Amino acid sequence: MPDARAARCITRRFAYGAVAAVMAMACAQFAPAAFAVGGAPPVGVQPRAPSPGHPPPAARTDRSEGTTASGPVRAQPPRMPFYVATKGQTTLYLLGTLHVGYPGDYPPEQPFRKPILAALDASPTLALEISPDDLLYSQEDVTRYGVCRSECLLDYLPDSMWKKLEARLRTNPAALKEIRRTRPWLASMLVETYDTLKAGFQSEYGSEAQLQNVYLRANGKIVGLETLNEQIATFTRLSSAQQREMLAQDLVQTPAENVADVKELHRLWRIGDADALKAWDDAKTDKLARSKALAASVDNRVVYDRNRRFVTRMLQLAVPNKPVFVAIGALHLGGRRGVLELLRRHGFVVVPG
């Protein structure tokens, strides 16, 4: 079984959450020093189900706002993309997540806005992209489907693309050695992971981890909207040309430019407008795409097919008078083919939370 720390590593397209399961194990294998993420969990935050010998979860803290006579102004959590979808007596709460973040995104005294915390308290079920149990048992599948026995990446890539990748990783020989054995889809995720780390993000401040830390309902359950196999198949079924398109997009810009984009995405996520987030990402994809047709086909598989699957599973979970709290990658929510619009087509009224 993989190390628990491996299950908290960084993901490609960290606001889509497309490979939370995949990168959870890959980080433990590919040049661990290069992927090291510093910092301990926030003060007072413990895993939801501690192992024997570990302290129990911290008590729920005061979530009041404002100041005290002798204390400073309390840090306020970001808005985040949060929406309420209702149809008759059926309610879905939807939060757009990031799989990494900064400590300031989740102030210890109040890690989420009050409406988000109230929705968590009211929901017997917390639905993530995949279940925590699936995430912990995923290393073997990444090795099987993303890693070759030989240096296969050189066979997949044209010489010009390999030279560009080699130049990108010239200061990290350990990572370059390991990435030679990956297929292009996994190489793409690893390249984006490096740039995410350079932006200073920390995996323990990803939304899913923080949500689980505060979801302390005695009878609540946490479920997945798709299985680990479904997530991995999203990428293993891409053609070689589609996989090369993914990697090519990651190599268009300099690492500094990619870091700036990651920070801008984070800024927009804090503001919390799902449609603005998706519009920004669409413009970025249009700028970086080497082949418009291939880029569109990748998005169909990685984003839009999964949006439809998410909605199908949400509707299966939805029960009158028993709200479901759904937390998925923020870029899945907005746009004309996003989860919010698909729910509207199913008769839900969707409003900002």
Rank of each mutant, 00 (worst) to 15 (best):
C9H: 13
R13Y: 00
V19T: 08
A20Y: 13
A20V: 11
M23A: 09
A24I: 01
A26L: 06
C27S: 09
V45P: 00
A49C: 00
P57I: 07
T61Y: 03
T61P: 01
R63M: 01
G66C: 07
A69S: 12
G71D: 13
P72W: 15
Q76A: 14
Q76M: 15
T86N: 05
Q89R: 14
L94D: 05
G96S: 12
G96P: 03
G96N: 06
H99P: 01
G101L: 09
P107Q: 09
F112D: 04
A118T: 11
L120Y: 06
L135R: 12
E151Q: 14
L154S: 14
P158Q: 12
S160E: 14
A167F: 15
T171Y: 10
P173D: 13
E178Y: 02
W185R: 02
L186Y: 05
M189H: 03
M189N: 09
Y194F: 15
G200D: 06
Y205P: 01
A209F: 07
A209D: 02
Q212F: 01
N213R: 15
G224R: 07
A241T: 11
M246K: 04
M246G: 01
E257W: 04
L268G: 02
D273T: 02
D273N: 13
K278F: 00
D281H: 13
K284Y: 02
R290T: 13
V303M: 14
V303Q: 11
Y304L: 11
N307Y: 11
R308L: 08
V311P: 04
L317R: 06
L317T: 04
V319A: 08
V339A: 10
L342S: 01
G353C: 03
